[in-house]
Amino acid sequence: MADIKVEHLHKEFGLGDDKVVALEDVNLEISGHVFVSIVGPSGCGKSTLLNIMSQIETPTSGIVSITQDNREALRGYVFQAARLLPWRTVMDNLLFVQDDPGDAATQERCQRYLDMVQLGDKTEKFPGELSGGMQQRVGIARAFSVEPDVLFMDEPFSHLDAITARTLRAELHEMWKATGKTIVFVTHDVGEAVELSNRIVVFSKGGTLEDDITIDLPFPRDPADEKVAVNKAAVLKKFEELDLVAT
């Protein structure tokens, strides 16, 4: 469980006429065992925010600190595409991100997370031998296997068919409950956000944080359940008010 502080974060790409403002004075605090979704239309800076938080990119200005008991928090990341090394086996893909890949306990831990995503018998396969859904599962197991304090996920299920996505969502939720992590989950699907999260942060085009909504419903949430539907409708209404619906 990590403490995330984002203060006056600003990010621009390009110079002169090509300049794009991806994030505009973003302030955000996230801490504890929460599942936070970041929603907003495509191009509103969601991926950029995750990339800055996970140190893939640097901010133009502003401060981002992610700590755990006053030390730098350990991060995991699940990407939109699985991003596996095609020349390494499934197991070696997990070991690649470990501090001590030779350690027996580490290997056991990787095996355990592969078991958890039902790929325990595919450890010696290469990613190209697996289906898209299986590859995404490997990506999820990889992120959990480093036992991070905070887990970033960038539209991890958007490339998958509806049934696989639903299964993985349920698995993810189980793992979130069991491991007590802080999860920051990016999606453009409001239904998915309402189903999974305690808190929804809404961004609009131009990279401004527009709203911060708490969803206080018990888990697991059935999308067909009336309360879930009501909440989803409420969030969608906010979207309309903010004029974000155009997709």
Partner: peptide, 21 residues
């Protein structure tokens, strides 16, 4: 770049990224 970024996001040191990616 996507794989190199992945390595960075997981704190993999540069030598490890060079050798494995």
């Amino acid at each position: 770049k996507d794989l190199i970024d992945m390595g960075k996001a997981f704190h993999v040191p540069n030598a490890g990224i060079q050798r494995n990616v």
